[in-house]
Nucleic acid binder design. Structure first.
Lengths: 125, 125
DNA sequence: GTGCTGATGAGATTGCATTTGCAATAGCAT
DNA sequence: ATGCTATTGCAAATGCAATCTCATCAGCAC
């Protein structure tokens, strides 16, 4: 049966502490703060497992590659900041239902925005 | 200087004859109908060149990888049919401006829909 | 037609994300 | 504490898209 390991716990903890979807390198770096010997292969193995059991969801981002996020999130989309490189989850859906195409049946959709996040927009002095 | 070659002409012809964005394999297969010896490396070289001169645009699709389309198209998004595997260009923008996030500056956006295209939706008998 | 050189074809090569093999380690039921 | 075996770390191996090498071919100016 499946065992509880400090490595897997660390990976889950990283997600619990993060408000952002994460790339493999993010997970590895933050996980190593908890378990310094944490290995890349171990992260891949656990991500795969966590996706299989439905705890994580895997998303293919067009410019960032594979990203991971908690599977229990409400419907949302992703914003990538071109300045600080963070990924944000945008609650709700910016898809305009009225504009969905005639004759097509939409089963899934992905929306990726990019630009500047509030933290990177210079506030006026 | 740059020469006119049957290979490059064939690749451009494939795009002129297509209403869909194309993957490398599509371009290669359709191009070989015009120039049977057409080589994968040649296609890559010409795609790169056509993107550089602004004749083609390159798009990263989250599930299909790199796709190419004419650069002179109006703003649009992409629909991937899960049944016939074709990619469609959807005129207009289904992005709901009212729902764009507070405090974020959106510089680019990509919307990918998938589902069933009209040709794959069974018509009632 | 000739010569220069940009372009091609074929295969080898790279770069990168992800996976795998295996010996060593560590959960956990007993 | 002991034994079974899932899990880990490490390095090597994969898979794949994209790129490069280089000998040969083919535009095109002359």
């Amino acid at each position: 049966m499946q065992r509880k390991t400090v490595q897997r716990e660390a990976i889950q903890e990283v997600f619990r502490n993060s408000e952002h979807p994460l790339r493999l390198e993010d997970i590895l770096a933050q996980g190593r703060l908890l378990v310094p010997t944490l290995n890349r292969a171990t992260v891949y193995r656990n991500l795969k497992l966590l996706v299989e059991i439905g705890w994580l969801a895997q998303v293919q981002h067009p410019s960032l590659g594979t990203i991971y996020e908690r599977a229990d999130l409400a419907h949302h989309h992703h914003f990538h900041c071109n300045s600080c490189d963070r990924i944000y989850e945008l609650p709700g859906c910016v898809l305009n239902a009225a504009a969905t195409p005639e004759g097509f049946i939409v089963q899934e959709h992905e929306i990726f925005l990019s630009g500047l996040c509030p933290a990177c927009v210079q506030p006026a002095p």
